[in-house]
Nucleic acid binder design. Structure first.
Length: 515
RNA sequence: GGCCCGGUCGUCUAGUGGUUAGGAUGCUGCCCUUUCAAGGCGGAGGUCGCGGGUUCAAGUCCCGUCCGGGCUACCA
């Protein structure tokens, strides 16, 4: 039987990192097995419904490079793929009737006030809370008919069998058992007629012929309900795969405090999607060899559910950064430039770089940095001299970890006069030999000297020889500061050849004035 | 409270009875070098949560215990 997996998010908000990992595993497994990857929207909770959510999922997953074979945005043989639409189509009404008919589900007319009272009593008596039958599980047909005739609202609950052991055979965790008497009767259909997750998800998984249910481990406690539901229908349940969660550095659930949880924020920060995938896949899974940097193809080829690990993993930003830098360095230069151009055209990245930054993430200072970074990125992407852009990017390629980093890295290439680091100016530009040095370089540039790294190197080394200075540093550093405003960056001779004589002369004369 | 899941260097992990407990990241030293990176070569960092047991032999199997996390809704 062909593998069919599904990502079934509830459209209540953004796509976060934890959910991404589950879809990634769905996707990798489907692709590896030549199976089908399905997107299904679980919008049965009207109160929490967010109309922008579905578009967020689709856009984000497109960026990451995770695609679907069936879903609300592309259709498929099991359409519709939104549960609200499936409800309208009468699917859940039809299925629940089967359970009502075979006696495995029942109508319960308790009011929410009654249920609250019941729970309170259970808590006081320190016994398990939940609905273990109440007065309706075994109510007589006439009692039910009477309540219905009065028009009382009701829910439909599943009859969890008594005095049994319910067994979950989880692919990652093995056998997990429950005494069925500790499992309460879950609501299947709410008073408003909408199905609950428990009902809709399992019915759809069966109808859509899902072979493996990959979901977060927070679902383990409700697994026995789902298994009992499959039994009530007489259906064979799919294979359950409860994936470990991703937590923050403090071991707690990933939240805003740990950095971005919204996947699209990583796109906006200029991370390479492949490295995010690579990184996320490595939390809870490994190929079993000592290999960590994996291409898309390798990821698919090597991935296997058998190698999933049960323990939760922490989200380590530094490793993501290493992976992203690695991916950028591996890129062909023209490809890289195209990616930078695309990045600058990416609306959300622009928005991200211009939105307010919370105090604990750097506040106004960080925000100013982002705005400057973006401005420089735009200069780079829109620069008329593409050959110049190419040369700048080549020199910075091995010094960045994200696409956005090119903003800061290339800034001095792009502006008329770079911002000068005051400390660097003070340290290097005041030295006695500097005026003579700049004069020599200026003369070389205006006199039509060769604009090559080799020629500049010879020029500066010759100056060193005649000046009597022992090291090249006192010559290189002031020049670098005058030309870039910084004490670090690409090789001086290479960057001089990129800047060219005109920029060099004007910057040197500016630098002379500054000091 | 009840039920459930988890526990190997700071972090991500390899490991399925016999290994000096391996790799990666991060940290750090050296090399390269005009700086910063990148790259190359080293180093520190783990009494495998703890305590019993089984065994000639336990990170690996069993029991107990501690700690962390989840669920305990007409939310998913």
């Amino acid at each position: 039987m062909s593998v069919r997996v599904r990502f079934a998010p509830s459209p209540t908000g953004l796509l976060h990192v934890g959910a991404l990992r589950t879809v990634l595993f769905d996707y990798l497994y489907a692709r590896k097995m030549g199976g089908v990857n399905i997107l299904r929207i679980e919008d049965t909770d009207r109160a929490r419904y967010n109309p922008d959510s579905e578009a967020e999922f689709v856009e984000t997953l497109r960026w990451v490079g995770i695609d679907f074979d069936e879903g609300p945005h592309i259709g498929g043989p099991h359409a519709p793929y939104r549960q609200s639409e499936r409800k309208e189509a009468g699917i859940y009404a039809r299925e629940i009737q089967k359970l009502l008919d075979n006696g495995t589900a029942y109508k319960a007319f308790d009011t929410s006030a009654e249920l609250d009272e019941m729970r309170e009593l259970q808590q006081i008596n320190k016994i398990a809370t939940g609905y273990f039958g109440g007065k309706w599980r075994d109510a007589s047909a006439s009692e039910v008919a009477e309540a219905e005739a009065e028009g009382k609202p009701f829910v439909i609950r599943l009859k969890i069998p008594k005095d049994r052991t319910i067994v979950l055979q989880d692919l990652i965790r093995g056998r997990v058992e429950w005494d069925s008497n500790v499992i309460d009767d879950p609501v299947l259909i709410k008073a408003d007629g909408m199905p609950t997750y428990h009902f809709a998800a399992m019915v759809d998984d069966h109808l859509m012929e899902i072979t493996h249910i990959l979901r977060g481990e927070e679902w383990i406690p409700s697994a026995p309900k789902h298994i009992a539901l499959f039994e009530a229908f007489g259906w064979t349940p799919p294979i359950f795969v409860h994936c470990p969660v991703i937590v923050g550095n403090d071991g707690k659930k990933l939240s805003k405090r740990h950095g971005a949880t919204r996947v699209l924020d990583y796109a906006a920060q200029g991370f390479m999607p492949q490295s995010l995938k690579n990184f996320i896949a490595l939390i809870g899974w490994s190929p079993g060899e000592d290999r960590e940097v994996l291409s898309e193809v390798e990821l698919i080829k090597l991935f296997d559910l058998d190698r999933l690990q049960p323990s939760p993993g922490r989200f380590d930003m530094e490793k993501l950064q290493w992976l992203s830098g690695h991916a950028i360095r591996a890129l062909d230069i023209d490809d890289l430039i195209q990616k930078i151009v695309d990045f600058v055209a990416f609306d959300y990245a622009r928005t991200y770089h211009h939105s307010e930054v919370a105090e604990d993430e750097g506040g106004a200072e960080e925000q100013a940095k982002r705005i400057a970074r973006w401005a420089s990125l735009e200069l780079l992407a829109n620069h008329p001299d593409r050959d110049y852009v190419r040369k700048c990017v080549v020199l910075e390629q091995e010094r960045v970890t994200t696409l956005a980093d090119f903003g800061e890295a290339c800034e001095f290439f792009l502006v008329d006069q770079p911002k000068m680091d005051a400390k660097a100016v003070e340290k290097w530009l005041g030295q006695a030999h500097v005026p003579a040095l700049f004069e020599v370089i200026g003369a070389f540039c205006e006199g039509g000297g060769n604009n090559t790294p080799e020629a500049y190197e010879k020029l500066l080394r010759d100056f060193q020889a005649t000046s009597g200075l022992e090291k090249l540093g006192p010559i290189v550093h002031p020049t670098r500061v005058a030309l870039t405003g910084k004490t670090f960056g690409p090789g001086l001779f290479e960057l001089m050849a990129v800047l060219g004589p005109a920029r060099i002369s004007s910057r040197l004369s500016e630098a002379t004035k500054v000091h």
